[in-house]
Design a protein around this nucleic acid. Structure first.
Lengths: 363, 363
DNA sequence: CTGAAAGCGCTAACAA
DNA sequence: TTGTTAGCGCTTTCAG
């Protein structure tokens, strides 16, 4: 933990200027591609720069220009396939425009989100894409700095209506409704929902649940609303015992589904709104020796190559993850470039992919 | 694309100094936590700083200190679950130490890798973690700059022996050998391998193949070596037609496995060294109406919750992705902190998880 | 078309 | 213990 690494420092603009026998400013103009320089000196400078292996010092540049050509991305978990896919999209679009990306994970914690934002503001990123941590839909005070500093912000995947910023989201509610309707169309009336809001006191009825969801900030909340919509349209009574209320990890999902399965009036179908919820349900069914779709029909969220090679292939609501990322970045970059278009919410469509995990309900 | 955003500029150290009625340096010392300051003025400065909402300008700091507290990570694809998992590990360890992470994907292209490295060097990251693009094991000239500039470098997942840098890898060869031996133990002698090297002229024999692999830089290459080892130990002749030689995407894997299945002496088991290879194999089997493990035994690479809820649950070689990332970051951060320990290669163990996708070979 | 010079906000060496 | 000062490398007026 001690000795110095030898660092051959990168040549500076002054050295290039000296080598080319001109002033610093002329070099800056040439290399920066602005102002005008006579072809002769231009060539001389270019030659000298190449000779010395000159590379502009981006930090010094940022210092004077105030821009870092870096975007910040804050999301729940980079390791999660959904966010990883979105990040890839953001990253691709950013790179295209000559920007790089700093990523921070929050694990759905508001504290970590605040810390992440602070880091990004301090690092002076040119723009921030934020997938807000799940939780209550209250003002996010840590975003005040972002606004005050005039840093462009785009909300990703989750909408916070108290924040006046562009947003890019999925039509979670409608897509979920469609999925549940596909179940209902096959005669299912007892449909389990994984995952509902984490709570000790499950909602008493649909209206109560709607009230809870109204204050939540949360993709699954929208999906639950879609579920409720489908039920309502079909005139199917809402049963609170068919909605999970536990911490969101696969084990809990398994346990919750096991609980539903033990009900005297057990569900004949399950709608799982995340991959973990689906695999948890599958695990529970396996434990009880139940088959899909013979015993229970299943619909999941987020497509993957696994879903389509399962036995049976799983019907899912597929989100355009990459596209979501690309659009987010484009939106953000437009603001960074100075766009003053009115704040807008872009809604991308998730698509229901029907495969073989849904069968008619047994009478 | 025009009007200015109002940016309330962050207060500078001078403003704090003025507000507190002291010199700039005193403020710097107080806020920077070095040198010594009298408790009195210290409090006054802290109060003023808080009052003004002072935040140090990290760019200006980097300008003088030469460090950015940022790490660069270059990998094939952030959207890939394996790399996403590794990135999460790197990110966690980096954050712990007060560092942030810039990620760049290369899609296994050497050109993109070179471009990524250039970007990171220009951005003056304090260290770089690189999962080299698959390809020929030749010197990577774009790494010269990194060495010349004395930027710490850690190789990740793939070993390049021409580069003198720390490395963190998996025991691919041994883990694969074990997996294949598990197949052999069940009486399998015709074992398909997905994925081998992309080539038009498949190797004539095992030695030829070894020679090819010797020049390749590629995790699957090590895995293929492990396969060869297992075959050799068991005295099973190597058959080139059981190794795929196509582009690495799921469709190609499907096609290649379809080809193997059409062989008069078709494989009774398949070892798939990536998730895409496994799902491709499953898809091919499904198309031919073949069942796992009754007709074909299967072993995949990389665990996921999907693998364990499949019918049947898939046996896999599981890599400690998160740990791999953490160790990489720790290793890199130690160098950044100035460690001059001898260059080392850390080998993490992948573990074989036996589930139900392997059955005894039919006689 | 070109050069000189100021200054971005901070750190660090030196004086007081 | 404090303040003064000199840069870090670049961009950007402003003269020439």
């Amino acid at each position: 933990m001690s000795t110095e690494r030898e660092r051959t420092p990168s040549p500076t603009i002054s050295e290039v200027a000296e080598a080319a026998g001109v002033g610093r400013a002329t070099v800056a103009r040439t290399l920066g591609g602005y102002g005008s320089v006579s072809p002769k000196t231009r060539d001389r400078i270019l030659a000298a720069a190449k000779e010395l292996g000159y590379r502009p010092n981006s930090i010094a540049r940022s210092m004077t220009t105030g821009e870092t050509r870096t975007l910040g991305v804050v999301l729940a978990d980079v390791g999660n396939p959904f966010f990883a896919g979105v990040l890839r999209g953001i990253s691709d679009a950013a790179r295209e425009a000559g920007y790089d990306v700093i990523v921070l994970s929050t694990d759905e914690s508001v504290e970590q989100e605040a810390a992440a934002i602070e880091v990004l503001v301090d690092k002076q990123v040119d723009g921030i894409a934020l997938a807000p941590a799940a939780g209550r839909r209250e003002t996010l005070p840590h975003l005040d700095v972002v606004a005050k500093r005039g840093i462009p912000l785009v909300l990703l995947d989750r909408l916070v209506d108290t924040v006046a910023a562009d947003a890019v989201v999925i039509n979670n509610r409608e897509a979920s409704r469609e999925a549940v309707e596909a179940l209902i169309a096959q005669g299912h009336r007892r449909i389990g929902f994984v995952w509902g809001p984490v709570t000790n006191e499950p909602a008493a009825d649909a209206d109560d649940l709607r009230r809870i969801l109204d204050h939540a900030l949360w993709s699954d909340g929208e999906r639950l609303l879609g579920y409720l919509d489908a039920l309502e349209r079909a005139g199917i009574p809402f049963d609170t015992s068919l909605v999970t209320h536990v911490l969101k990890n696969e084990q809990q999902a398994t346990r919750a589904v096991l609980g539903m399965l033990a009900l005297s009036d057990a569900p004949t179908a399950i709608f799982a709104t995340e991959t973990d919820a689906l695999t948890g349900a599958l695990r529970a069914m396996r434990q009880r020796g139940l088959l899909c779709p013979e015993d229970i029909s299943l619909i999941g969220f987020d497509d993957s190559s696994w879903a389509s090679v399962m036995t049976p292939p799983m019907s899912v609501v597929a989100q355009p993850m990459h596209r979501l990322g690309v659009l987010t970045a484009e939106c953000l970059l437009a603001r960074v470039a100075g766009s003053d278009a009115p704040v807008a919410t872009h809604v991308l469509e998730a698509s229901f992919i029907a495969r073989d995990s849904v069968a008619p309900a047994a009478r």
